[in-house]
């Protein structure tokens, strides 16, 4: 049921060319996207068409508070909040958190990292459960 190939990242605020946002959706937790300073940080996953989503699993490091907004039209500006979660700090190993989206239909999901346990946070994989 898990599929990390479906959506792709269309934008992210940070820039280290060795750790591009595509690393979030490549299905590999060895590769990652890393924030490059300041909060909030965000990235957007886009689906080819409106998709029903039961939830997402986020593998990350030092993320503290994550909010997820969704969008059901192709207009980038119209997002509504669907979920948020406070992650636990896991020193020395990745965080892995499942966030239920209750079968919401979305064409885009915006992930907003509102705060972190450090100045820099990383996201290694987002897997979508349909």
């Amino acid at each position: 049921m898990f599929d990390s190939v479906g959506p792709h990242v269309v934008m992210a605020a940070s820039s280290d060319e060795n750790h591009p946002p595509e690393n979030i959706t490549d299905g590999n937790t060895k590769t990652f996207w890393i924030s490059t300073g300041m909060f909030p940080q965000e990235f957007v996953l886009r689906f080819a068409e409106p998709t029903q989503i039961s939830g997402v699993t986020v593998d990350s490091y030092n993320v503290k508070h994550l909010k997820i907004d969704k969008n059901t039209t192709q207009q980038a500006s119209q997002f509504e909040p669907v979920a948020e979660k406070e992650f636990e700090c896991t020193e020395g190993q990745l965080q892995s958190n499942y966030i239920s989206l209750n079968g919401s239909s979305a064409t885009q999901l915006r992930f907003i990292i509102a705060s972190g346990y450090d100045h820099f946070v990383s996201v290694h994989r987002v897997s979508v459960k349909y």
């Binding site: 750790h19 990652f32 890393i34 300073g37 190993q93 990745l94 892995s96 100045h119 990383s122």
Partner: peptide, 16 residues
């Protein structure tokens, strides 16, 4: 410098 340190740490992290 802090960024480089943190990035190295993340590169060597174990799985969840």
């Amino acid at each position: 410098s802090l960024y480089q340190q943190r990035r190295d740490t993340i590169q060597n992290l174990g799985p969840a």
